[in-house]
Structures are given as structure tokens and as C-alpha cells.
Design a binder for these strands. Structure first.
Lengths: 240, 240
DNA sequence: GAGTGGTCTAGACCACCCC
DNA sequence: GGGTGGTCTAGACCACTCC
């Protein structure tokens, strides 16, 4: 199970092993895990290394510890929308729909003051403006407009916009998206929104604004979305 | 700064010390911290203990690490709604309003099948049903109905319902609320909702359903809220 | 008292960054 | 090459739970 000659850290190997046991059902919610000292001896690793693996799993919500009693498998997290920081594509798949895209705008424009403020850049700096209709099983679900600093994220193409923006940013540019803030409000569809979403003028919609940030707080993008309220519920999980 | 004779763990003392430096502005976003080894020597503690403090602060979003370069102060988290798991009272204070309450129902009822399902108890088991109008600066902002298992949380009174439910649960019953899931949707106010919120019949509202859980996954409560959409935006922060 | 997790030490070597 | 964080060891003692 644990390979000391692997370049993969020992604590990470143990972490994945335990995660596997939980996901396979070999460990069920409420079950006690073998004590830390037992793992250490069994795999001939230090207890601190076992603790590092356990601590990670506790932070991720797989386990919980009770002092003096032991370490236990946590209740399965309910219909988890992956802590919230998901792309539209991931979100729709998790809900059992087939996601789709219709690109309706892909331009580089000078930043307006609102965009510049959100992205913490100067006015008139170049930004990508990408407007897409988001489909679920072929039906319009949302209207999404992304603003991304062209000086920070280079080499975006229509091709990429039709596939995975996040994938491109994280894999090809080696930038890690770390956090996001969202503001959600209810309102009524404007004429243009109604037309693109194929809903009635004035029908209820949810406006969602999302700002995403790198680990050092640099804004990566700023997204305005309009979801049709008759088909979309926003789900979020939180830990204290 | 670090007191070895204190019963407070060393890593925690260091953590609070650094957090203080950041909040006082003695350390600014982007600043590099002294290296781990320097802290270890300065306070005569082990490097592993320093790392434990740093790791916590990284997880809490105060710091970030770059291998080979150092540890840095993260950008200030934007208008943070405290990771989301806040009470109405905390939420309104953070937004600069004076929160208020108007209790309109406080009963013990037998659980309906919906309530039983959400709280994972049996049908007809006793539950508290607490209905309140939530005010901001004296104006109705939301309608909130809590369902709490009377067998799990004992001794609730109208008095407590008018103050702090969470406070009572966490302090007096020694139960830690660990996580929550929320579902948010847009709709239109029913006649009754409109009347209680003093808005027009059919005006846009946000329905928010929240389920809260203990660390082992036991459901603590189940809350249905109706917020008036003209005055309320839902804000949420997420980490990947 | 035995067993559990919580804290802590004093080292070690590795991987990565920058000069 | 020197400095940084990343991983890891083999112990130690403490606090808490349960019998």
C-alpha cells in the first residue's frame, strides 16, 4: 500500500489509501479508524506522518477526531457541489445535465471603470470580454459574461473559450485559482436577457457575480451570470 | 511573545501573534515573513511547531507559501461574510444594519415527513417550530422558520429564540456546529409572505433553505427563509 | 491504568528558487 | 551555493476517555 521508494509523499499515499477505503464503502460513516500508532507501525512510518495524512482528511471533511476516543469516518457530505468553486460545466454534470456552450461574443476591449475596479487594473487596459449562452441538455440555462485581464492571461482563443477557461488558466499558465466571492440576487429578466434565454420578458432570474482570485489575492476574472430562476437553484456547502 | 509555561499551545500562541501583526498592519499583504527557521531559533521552539502555526494560517487564508521563496502575507479577504456560516444577526451587523426580531410562532409540533427527512428523525417526533420576522433597522427583511429536534436540543424557550439560537446550542449544550448546506432560489412572494414582509403580492423574493450539521453529520436544524429580493443580496466566499 | 489523540523536540535530507 | 519551504523520523510527555 505504501511505497517508500515512490517520489509521492508518504502522507499523501496514506491519504489516498484511506480516501479510497471510504469511497469503496470499506469504511462507513461512524466507523473508527485504526489508531495513529497502529498505522505508523504497520507501514513503518512515523506517527507524525500518519498525523499529517489524518489532518488533511479532517480538513477535507472525510474524518473527525475525538480526543481520547479515536478518529472516525464523517457522514458523507450531502449532494456536494464541490465546495462551490466549480465551473458551469462541472456544476451541470453534477446535476445530471449535459452541459453545452454557445459563444456569442469574444473580443478584447478596453476596461471600463467597473471592470478595471473589479480586476484591480487600470481603466482602458485590455481585457477579454467573453459572452456565452450556457446550455443544459440543449436548453438555455444561463447567460455568462467573463472579463479577464489580457495582460495577465495571455493567448486565449475562441477555441479555448468554447472548452475550458479554468483548465487553460490552471494547466497552461500554471496559475492556481484559490478563492472566489459571489454575490447572488434575484431580479427580473431584461428584454435582451429574456430573448437569449428564451424566457418571458420580466421572468424571474438570478444574477450572480463572481470574482476569482489567485493565492496572493490577484484578481483573475470577473463574471456576471444570469440564470433562469425556474430551472436553477444555487447550492452551497460551508464549513465553520 | 511566546510563553513556554502557558497551558496555551505554542503553535497557537505564535499563530495569534502573527495574526495580530497582520491585523495591526505591521505586516502588509505581499510582505515576506521571516523564515520558519528564524522563528524557531528566535523563540527557541522546534521548526515543526512553527510550521504548525504557519500551516493553520495558510489554511485560514492569512498567509501563502512559495517553495524556495518564502512565506507571504495574503491579500486581505474582501468584505468577508465570515465564510458564510453566520446567523442573521451577525450577517446584518456586518452589513451595517441593526438587526431585530419579531417572534410570531414558538411551538413544539410532531415532525411532518419533510421535516423528519431533513432532520433524519422519525415522523411525529417532537420538533420546535420557530417562526420569526427578521428586521434590519426596523424594516422587515426576511421571514425565517426554524425546525429543531426537541429530543436533540432541549430546553429552548421563547426567551432564547428572541436572542441567540446558535449561541445557546454551542455554549450551553456544548455541541459544535460544523457545516451547513444551503439552497437558494428565486421566486415570488405568496400572499402570506407579502403581508408579513410588507411587500407587494408576487414581489420577487429569495427562498433560502439551510441545513446545519454537527461534526459527525448529525443534523441540528433545518431553516426555511424568505428574503425580500429588493433589499437583500446573498454573499458568499469560497476557497478551492 | 490502558488507550486514544494533542503537542513538541532536534535533528535529517530533498526540491525549488535565485544569484 | 545558499536559502527557502516540503517531507520525514523516533522518540517524549500531556489531556482526555473509558473501564
Amino acid at each position: 500500500m505504501i511505497n517508500k521508494n515512490s517520489p509521492i509523499p508518504l502522507y499523501y499515499q496514506l491519504e489516498e489509501h484511506i480516501k479510497g477505503l471510504i469511497e469503496n464503502g470499506e469504511l462507513s460513516p461512524g466507523d473508527a479508524l485504526p489508531p495513529e500508532r497502529e498505522y505508523a507501525e504497520k507501514y513503518q512510518i512515523s506517527r507524525m506522518t500518519v498525523r499529517q495524512a489524518f489532518t488533511q482528511l479532517v480538513n477535507e471533511g472525510y474524518l473527525y477526531r475525538l480526543q481520547g476516543k479515536g478518529t472516525f469516518v464523517a457522514e458523507r457530505k450531502i449532494e456536494q457541489p464541490l465546495q462551490g468553486l466549480t465551473s458551469f460545466t462541472e456544476d451541470m454534470k453534477a446535476r445530471g445535465f449535459t452541459p453545452g456552450n454557445k459563444l456569442i461574443k469574444f473580443e478584447i476591449i478596453p476596461a471600463t471603470s467597473q471592470i478595471a475596479g473589479q480586476l484591480k487594473i487600470s481603466e482602458y487596459e485590455p481585457v477579454y470580454e467573453i459572452k456565452r449562452i450556457r446550455l443544459a441538455d440543449g436548453v438555455p440555462m444561463a447567460l455568462e459574461t467573463n472579463y479577464i485581464s489580457a495582460n495577465l492571461i495571455k493567448g486565449l482563443t475562441e477555441q479555448i473559450a468554447n472548452q475550458s477557461l479554468y483548465g487553460h488558466i490552471e494547466e497552461h499558465l500554471n496559475l492556481r485559482i484559490e478563492s472566489a466571492s459571489q454575490v447572488i440576487e434575484s431580479s427580473s429578466a431584461s428584454q435582451n436577457e429574456a430573448k437569449l434565454l428564451k424566457i418571458a420578458n420580466g421572468a424571474p432570474v438570478m444574477h450572480i457575480q463572481r470574482n476569482t482570485y489567485l493565492h496572493d489575492g490577484t484578481p483573475v476574472e470577473f463574471v456576471k451570470s444570469v440564470y433562469r430562476a425556474d430551472r436553477y437553484k444555487f447550492m452551497i456547502q460551508m464549513k465553520r
